[in-house]
Design a protein around this nucleic acid. Sequence first.
DNA 1: GTAGCGAATTTGTGATCACAAAATGACACG
DNA 2: CGTGTCATTTTGTGATCACAAATTCGCTAC
Lengths: 256, 256
Amino acid sequence: MAVKPDHEFGFHRTRKKTLAVRRSALQSGPAKAPAGQRVSSRGTTREMVDTAVRTGLLTGRFVPGKPVTIRGLAAEIGVSPMPVREVLQRLAAENALEVKPNGRVQVPDMTPARFDEVLKARLLLEPELAELALPHLFGDAAGELKAIDDDIDACLHSGDAESYMRLNHAFHFRIYRASRSKVLLPLIDSLWLQFAPFMRTVYGRVGTAILEDRHKEAIRAIELNDTQALRAAIKADILDGMGFLGREILSDGPTG
Amino acid sequence: MAVKPDHEFGFHRTRKKTLAVRRSALQSGPAKAPAGQRVSSRGTTREMVDTAVRTGLLTGRFVPGKPVTIRGLAAEIGVSPMPVREVLQRLAAENALEVKPNGRVQVPDMTPARFDEVLKARLLLEPELAELALPHLFGDAAGELKAIDDDIDACLHSGDAESYMRLNHAFHFRIYRASRSKVLLPLIDSLWLQFAPFMRTVYGRVGTAILEDRHKEAIRAIELNDTQALRAAIKADILDGMGFLGREILSDGPTG
DNA sequence: GTAGCGAATTTGTGATCACAAAATGACACG
DNA sequence: CGTGTCATTTTGTGATCACAAATTCGCTAC
């Protein structure tokens, strides 16, 4: 592990002027701000920590197996341990993190059985949600997706795995979010949080050049308002990407 | 709101001898125990609160729409607000509870759209998990399920809705848990936590006498090791129970 | 009697403290 | 040189405090 990377997050609270504070500045906490203007009055700190850790997981900044400590994360982000505790509990409840019997929390290791289940669940749920979203994908939606996909192509050529993962997530969830789903969407969210960190380790080994996506087929299906074609494109995209990952995991054993 | 029910939980920490304490008894907290013997060394309080609230939700002791306060729950169970906070965060992450913009947390109201999504997700996931569980359901499994189903029949006749819900959950998850699933099972767990409270309010209105379940068909399919029959039985059981609930929600509008 | 307003209470949130268990490291002994 | 043991540090957990926002309640004015 050599040197501890000081900037694992690009999210350090600015330490001089925090985005949102409620304290009256007569405390000595790590997040000190004399007169911060707050955007939303209540519960902004936890939300900030939550999105920070979530995007960290989705872009693979957390390594599976490496323990995540409350105080460590709190110090990195620049807040007290309290909001971090709650965020880690939340993510553990979504199976994005794993609490070991000692109380230590870490990114779960990927196993073949787990991988098969995630793949199965994705194939069941995501085409369904895409179908639900299709009626809401009108107007500029196809254009937005095309823009994201262009950026993805650029990342694939340049080999920027982190940006690729962020954009790939953005592409899929631009579709899914349109469904306004309050049930299926969180389930799929949980699934992505589970396989993303593992995905990242694979890309780190073999690069992203091999990847091809079915996004253009999906965009075309959306433009044509073709439900079955959209389902097929989503399904094919999942199978391509995950099938590729699956071969990796089977060849190398459970992560490493 | 009349009188506050003092015994909403049958789970009051005994106040004299707690099950598991780590504190050295020189504190003045609400959970005081001079020399409690502890079963599991670490993190037992939160686990206790978690199962308490979870079973409370599954058996319908929480009313949709009624706010759940941290301090209130903590006082009822007899612990400090701290573990309750984390448990509520966990359950909110599983969409079993809803955090309103003010920070107040309550059981979400059921809406027709939500209901459709839960139904759809259950139909997609639960037959799949039952199929995965089937190879592990040998030996006395069918006998256990038969015993549970007998109790269910008794509850249906006596109209004990709370016991019915607890046993119905036990029946389904006796099957699902056998799959040793680490991915699909939590997803289905989340779904049950979402519709159970609403289910309870319906039963409270119309009783349980109308219900018939497909559990016997499922047991027979397990005995015969018939995958398709098991899938069909689970699917039919979901459709019967939820279809019945669906007619209720559509006739009366979003909960009430 | 009712509507509007202000005080008092409730409630969520972040911070800090205390303690025990686990992890880590150093050191002595074989 | 390896191994077991003990001291030190790290870490999770529960409790408590302080504060602000939101809610609730009571009172007054019309």
